[in-house]
Structure formats: C-alpha cells, structure tokens
Design a protein around this nucleic acid. Sequence first.
DNA 1: TAGCATGTATTTTTT
DNA 2: ATACATGCTA
Length: 640
Amino acid sequence: MSWQDNLDPASPAYKIGAATARYLRVVAGPGTGKSFALKRRVARLLDEGTRPDRILPVTFTNVAAEDLQREMLQVGVTGCKDIKGSTLHSLCMRILSRQQVLEAIGRIPRPLNNFEMEPLLYDLPNSFGNKKKRAERIRAYEAAWARLQHEQPINAATRQDNAFEMLLRDWLQFHKGMLIGEIIPYVYTYLRDNPSAPERELYDYVLVDEYQDLNKAEQAVIDLLCANANLLIVGDDDQSLYSFKYAHPAGIREFPKSHIETIDYEILECRRCPTKVVSMANSLISHNTDREPRQLIARPANGVGEVEIVQYTSLENEAVGIARFVNDLIENQGYRPGEILILAQRRSIGNPIGDALIGRRIPTKSYYREGVLDNGAAQERLAMLRLLANPLDRIALRWLLGLESNDFRSNAYARLRSYCEANGGEPWDVLVQLRDGRARIPNTRHLVTRFEEIETELNQLRQTGGLEEFVRKWLQNAISADDPFHNLVLDLAPTVEDPKALLDAIIDAVAKPDVPPDVAEVRIMSLHKSKGLSSSVVIIAGCVEGLLPTASGENATPAEKLASLEEQRRLFFVGLTRVKANPGEDRPGILVITSSRTMPLADAMQSGIRPARVVHGTAHVHASQFVRELGPDAPTPKQG
DNA sequence: TAGCATGTATTTTTT
DNA sequence: ATACATGCTA
C-alpha cells in the first residue's frame, strides 16, 4: 500500500505528506487529525527509501512520546517499527552520556527527584528573593536564561543570573547530582560549541509535535539537531500552557520568521468534537488577544452534542450531583466508566468528587492521589533506602538531615559543607567525627543529633536477613498500608534480590510511570494532564472565578495579569475540546461545566480564591467569567 | 544563632 | 489549612 491511498490531493494530510520544503509548520487545532497527517508523511518518507533511523519524531511529555511511538507503529510501511520516538529530554540525555559531556566537566548524572530539590532551595541565599523566586530562577536556568521568545539562550542571563548559576552548580557539584532540567542547557552549549559534533547530522527528518510547549532553549536545541535535516513542527498556539517553564504562544507563531522559506499549513476541521462544543470553544478563545485569529471548523456528521452548565449550592452538592450524573450515564445511557473524564483544576475540587464516585462504587482513578512520592513518609523511606544502598549519596543525606526542621537546617548544614570543602572530607565521615567529638563545628548540635537518628535506623536495617524481612522493617510503622509508595514497593520486591536492586527498580518506576492506553475507570485529573486525551463525556468541575481563572497575585503588572488570564483561557479551551463525538451512534458527546455557589473557606483559601463574601466559615463564590464567554450556542446555566 | 512562636499569603504543570 | 517569612528568646 502507498502513502497516498484513499487520500484526497486537496486534503491537508496529502499536502503535508508530500511537502518537500526544508521547514514546515503545521498549525493544527484540537482534534484536527494532525497525527494522521504525520503518519502519512512518515509513510511517504519510508516509501521513498529514507532509513528509519534517520527520522526523529520528538515530543515534550512521556505520554505524548508513547502516543507518537504507537502512531509510528501504525504507519504500516516497512521500517516503521524501527523509528524511535523520544522526548526531547531523553534524547538529550542520551547525547550527554554517549559523549561523556558531563564527565568531562566534572558533573555526575545522578538526577534529583523533585522532593530532593527542597534542601537546595533552602541552601540558596535569599539575596535571590524568597523561596518561590529562587525556584523560578532555577527554572530560568533550565531554560538557559531565555525567558522571552526573542531572547537568545545564555545571552539573556543577567549578572545576578550568572551569580546564581555559580552557586547552583556548586551545590549540585558538591552533592554529586544534577537537575533533569540541566540536560537542555548542557546539550545546547555542547552542540553550539562543537560544530562538528556528530549529533548535528544524525537525522534527515525531524518531526516535532506540540511545538508550542517548547521554550526558546529547547527550540534552539532542535535547530542545532537539524543542521542539515528537514524540520517539521506541529502545534497550536491556542494550546500553549507552559509559561511557567518559559514556553509562550509566540514560540510557534514566530517560527516562519526565524526559519526562512517555511511552508505553512493549517488544519482547521475539528474531527473530534460535537458541533456545539466547537462553536463554544471558538467563542471562548476569540477573547484572547495573544493569538492569530482563527476558527475551528465543525464537522456536522459529529452531531450537535449535549452541553450543560450547572451551578450547585455547595462544593459538597457539586460532588454529589456529578456522582449522580455519572452513575446515570453508566447505568442508563450505555457509557462506560473509561469514557468519562472529570477535569478539576485543584486537588481540593477533585478529591470530594472522587470520594462521591467511590461512595457509589463507581470505578474511579484520581490522578491527584497517584503520585508515588507525594507524601513526606514515602520521601523519607526512599531517602533512607538511597543512603542504605550508598552512604556517600550526599543528596539523600542532605535531605534527611533537614527533616523535622522548618528551614532544612540550612545554616548548620552550610557550616558542615564549608568544613568538608575546606578539609576535603565526606559529609558522612565528618558527621561521625562530630558525633565522636573528634571534630568540632559550632552550632551543629541538632544536626549531629539528627545524624545519629539516621545512623541508628540504617544500622537496624542492615541487621536484617532476607529482602522480605528488610522491606517489612523498612516500611513498617513508617508508611500506611494503602499508600501508593507502599503498594509500588510490594509490587517490585518479589522481582528483585536485594535492597540495591529494589532501589533501582523504584527509581525506574518513578521516572517513567506507565500510562495504560485503555482505561476502565472514570478518570479525575487536572486540565494540564488532559492535554492529548479525548473522551465521550467531559465534566469540567469547579469553574469558579478565582480558581479558573486563578486570581493572579496582587503585585503582578497589568501585562502579567493579562498573560496569566489568557493562559487560563487556553487551559479551559483545551478542556472543552477533549469531548469526543461518536458519529453514527446514538450516544452523543457530552460536555458538562459545573460550579458551586459556596465552598468551605479553608478550601477556598487553600486554592487562592478571594471569596466574594464569607458567612460562618463558608466562602461565597461566583461562576467563572469563562462561562459567559461561550457564545450564543452555550446553554443557559441551570441550578443543580 | 538555632529553633520556636507568631503573622501573612496562598496554584498549576514538565523533565 | 498549610507553607513560608519574620521576629523573639534561650
């Protein structure tokens, strides 16, 4: 079979498949079938004898990469199985290790888990702003300091950024670890400074999906990988949601300006959504100013769909009402739990809904409760295991030493670190000397006490026989039996021999959580996580002003406030366009938008909502402004 | 100076 | 409610 079988030469998929320009940009709205077009193009390349290993499909998230890999398998042309799809980060990590880039500059590829960044944040001085500001600056470092689309990586660093980078790298070097986010700046400088690096010419065809999610540094890495390659980028500025890592909608819009003779395609027909949803999504997104005016085209065969906008009197009633609605869909209308997607912008909204569904014995999976390393107990268990496997793991030791303190004992620890740097000793050994009185560092008494606790527990754990006994002793009384980390360990333990192997298995499982393509449960997740998914029934809960859109900080400038509002609108746009029509079936695509009039004050405050009014510990809130922006096809909101 | 007490502001998402 | 910042005290 040929790549152009059953393809109308006037269709975007045909044109994209056949295009031969050096640079191609495809702007493809939600549900427009961009992966179909991508597949046709790959089929054509293979048909014409391109070697599969000279084709690189790349994305930003793991889930999208797996998706893309699956799509490649479906191309159905000889060689498609040999195409290796990858996230940009995993590709870059392979480059760094193959070329021993890190070793050459004295860095060790021991990545920090998210929670292990906590002591780092406390150890960086507050001359760089408060903790949040320091975390933000780390993200700017990971973006190679290019915070704006027009800035060049590295060049955009200020004097203060450079000072920060020195301290940050010193900390990481001393602790013998690295940030995942450092992969990008290191690959960028490696490729830029080594024009004859083989990686610049590894590929003839590079296909980048979700280009709007890449920041300037990541885009620059792509350009360097394409020294001679043909580059196709696919994306949608209306679905750009990652400004926190300095990806902006302008990133994909300005591609033709920075890449001369780019050939441009648009795919506008939304093949996924019911027509009413398309009309509402168009109306909503037209309120954004930071975009190219563009309208999705509805597909009449998809049917109108069903849309409801419901306001409940309280968050509790919202949860109960949604559970009742879901129950009816499953019991009486022939929808499977796996076809129902509930989107909530906050844990505090998602959790009561999850409880209400489980209360009705509806199979439910909450992506809010899933995080294996989300709670302190699990983090401590992992850190203990890391230290048991390697007492010289300075990152795990640093983390454990900071426990039970509200500043991670950063001052006492700084003294210990200076002592080690001055005398060349291991932190562990110096702590032993301090404990024995063979060394003296002022104001470190509590730090040493904490060390003794860690040491005692490690010694007890070492005195165990088999792995089974070890696991029992390690987890018992420290972590609850229904904790996701506990479950993960019990799953992995029978497959390994010793604690070291168990640690490796856990790290592996945490780094790459597998996402099964077929689900049997109702899913509750954030709007961000839902990107790339589609489902017959989509319920967007908690559509309350202050939550969606979130209230931006008081000291934000008007421009920052507008940018934040527009990103929130894109988030809602992504949510709406998850609805999948079932053409030819009598089960329409369903969209439900819910809000509540009141919620517990604690929940509201925790979520950063400034309530309109507070009565007896209950916050009174208003429906989201986005509900008013859905246009004439949106139904009138009703009471739940 | 570390650790505690008190006051104040508050998100989300990725690798 | 909780995390974080700041001020107070031993």
